[in-house]
Design a protein around this nucleic acid. Structure first.
Lengths: 236, 236, 236, 236
DNA sequence: CATGAATGAGGGTTCATTCAT
DNA sequence: AATGAATGAACCCTCATTCAT
């Protein structure tokens, strides 16, 4: 009998529940959802099978509960990070770093999220997914902000960018989980950020611009002047 | 019992096998691998369960056979397309279009490939995966060529680019499969290509260059002249 | 799930296990191993199929467990019987009686042991078979003792004797099981014992002996005097 | 379609049938009846599964046909051997030798007969079993003859003797098949025969007899004189 | 004669879930 | 609050047997 699937309960209860979630995460990560058995989750969590059903209504409920806390904390963590970053490109870079780092530090969670949850249509209806969706809107917002500020070009597409960020990160992490390559996904962060950001970069972002018309062969070409990418002015 | 999982056989046999694969693809796409039952595959293929086992040794063997022909043809098709394209950016664009189009046209296959096969570690040991791996090397090659020709900047990373391309496309297709959004993944192709390519773009690629030194406030800045991104020269 | 194929457990559990073994013994005896179904064993034992798998890992494990207790007890019983018997021939007789009686009293067990287990090569690797082997060494020992004491002739072969005892008893019991003949295998015990023992008998065993030389036709023959086989001296 | 399960047919047909029987014997011997598959029998016989059903109505019919020719020939062979042997003990010895030899020379047949057929109640209704029964009556006859001629004691039991002979031989052969011990069952023949025959031996069998009454302690004992067991008369 | 092809029927085994204690 | 014990429901797979060619 599930006497308290509810919410407020004793600290001991809370700990038990955590134990089960942790055990389940490990087992699911190793075996996949359907090949994982409640009995193994019970063994790994140090509780009986029946007790598991005191805390969760079904095997799938366990699965869908695993990302709840994690995504909640992840979202908060990200917001915290972004507080002090202003430029859109740095924000995007931070998001990418953060996301890769997180998965690398929690491989069991990564396996559950990317290999199991991602393919389950019913997951889309859970609270955890709602949080993820919100979290991922941050990317949209950052891109829009970047466009508004002129940092990103106006043709930049926020949705496409989000797809690129999430897709690339997740693809890299899946490769790492299944193939062991790359050996550290977070090592990609810098390069990946650079390419994505440069894909958004607005060449016109500077406040001034020099236009030049060059006429040759009876035909005229228009040019615009932009500052050399980086680096100090060279001495005359 | 027809025991000939082997290879060369009658045309009728070949057709039967195709039927089964087609039926399995549909069922797997709808239910996922483990919730799909052989009995339903049999029903959908119009054969008996036992017959299925005359053609395939196990449920998993069916699963791993599904992408065989498809990836083989996909690889050839791509090579065909690329034959007449020279510029690296156009090649990349073609790859992305092609990949998105293919998934959009074969949603069942997409579901099997992206939601089932992609998370199965044993798939990595199959012939089909070998073909996919080869296929995906094309992306690496294109990026390297682009860098060699000066079309892409030298800092561009082929592996990261491949991750971006595959990750973004697959992420988009998964969203389409599970959420129905975007309503047409291939519609992303243009925007996605543009952002990825611009992430690789070499601002220095033109053969001629006009350099200008602008000195102001006692400090000198160097500029270089590049042609306006697209468009014909405007008339004087 | 009750997962405890182990050992020490509640009395109730122990009873359940016994029930299953008893039911299985009956079903196996009637149908043979491969034609017996777990579902029928379940029905006869009054438990569900799944419960059977809580107590035993496989159908074959049930089969191999059936003779465990029985042979253990049989071995002890025999040792008990033999405690007070000194003469080798009486010991042999006791063994034969005992063995035939046992099978006759437990026809289901007899069928399982003689018709099923005996032909299963894997049975030879089980604990139960180890006990049987030990048990059967008693016959070897008795024969050797009989030879040592002069009760049995020195040419008597312990291994051949064991083969005769086991072979004859088992053959008789199989006939009884399958053909109903003889109607009571244990009725053979006396005659069988007598013939086997007489096959071992040492004609020289008496303490005294009268030798006579009889000469006829110019040839001499030696005789020895032995007491009349059994029976009291006849009156003059 | 079984067009000719009947009898008279072409020599080619006959050969085919023989091939199948031979293949089946091998497979049954290796796997047991139920674990042997028609498909493997087909492979080993060099025919298709369907063809097997042209010659035999069912898997069990194959099984029951295997011993037909063999037992028929065995019976004839034995009769041939016995033609020139007069003494009952030699006949018995011949039977035992013959039986052990035969099994040793045909291990596949031995396995089929002793491990499969012997425990199948339906085999008892076949023609082959009828022949075996007849064959085994020879033992009964020999024992009765021995008793009639005075060679065997009058208490000797023909049925028990048959059980001993068959039981011991078969037990020995089974041990050989499953355990590899003894390494040659036929090596037991001599010892086994000796013990069985001595179990039947009539100490009174000679034509003359000397009776002696020995009186001592006021009690009288009767003795009879018998010739020394074997060996020539010793010189005076 | 021979067989390639097809299948119906069935069986062992696994597990999520329930409930009495 | 916890669990030992029990089970219903399913699924994969095998194989003897049939039939059209």
């Amino acid at each position: 009998m599930a006497r308290q699937t509810g919410s407020a309960r004793s600290a001991k209860s809370e700990r038990r529940k955590e134990d089960i979630l942790r055990g389940a995460e490990r087992v699911f990560a190793e075996k996949g959802f359907l090949e994982a058995t409640i009995s193994e989750v019970a063994r790994r969590s140090g509780v009986s099978e029946a007790t598991i059903y005191d805390y969760f209504g079904s095997k799938e409920e366990i699965l869908f509960t695993i990302p709840l806390e994690t995504t909640r904390r992840g979202k908060e963590k990200l917001e915290e990070y972004l507080t002090y970053i202003r430029s859109a490109s740095d924000r995007l870079r931070a998001i990418i770093h953060n996301y890769l780092d997180f998965y690398e530090k929690h491989p069991d969670y990564a396996a559950v999220a990317l290999l199991i949850l991602k393919q389950n249509p019913r997951f889309l209806e859970t609270e955890a997914y709602r949080i993820i969706r919100e979290w991922s809107r941050t990317i949209l917002r950052v891109v829009e902000e970047g466009k508004a500020s002129g940092e990103f070009r106006s043709q930049a597409d926020a949705y496409v960018t989000r797809t690129m960020v999430l897709g690339a990160v997740e693809h890299a992490v899946i490769g790492w989980l299944l193939l062991g390559r790359p050996s550290s996904p977070s090592a990609l962060a810098e390069t990946l950020s650079a390419q994505i950001i440069q894909g958004l970069d607005n060449p016109d972002r500077q406040g001034w611009r020099m236009e030049i018309s060059l006429t040759a062969d009876g035909r005229t070409k228009n040019y615009r002047l932009t500052p050399e990418e980086e680096g100090e002015p060279s001495d005359s």
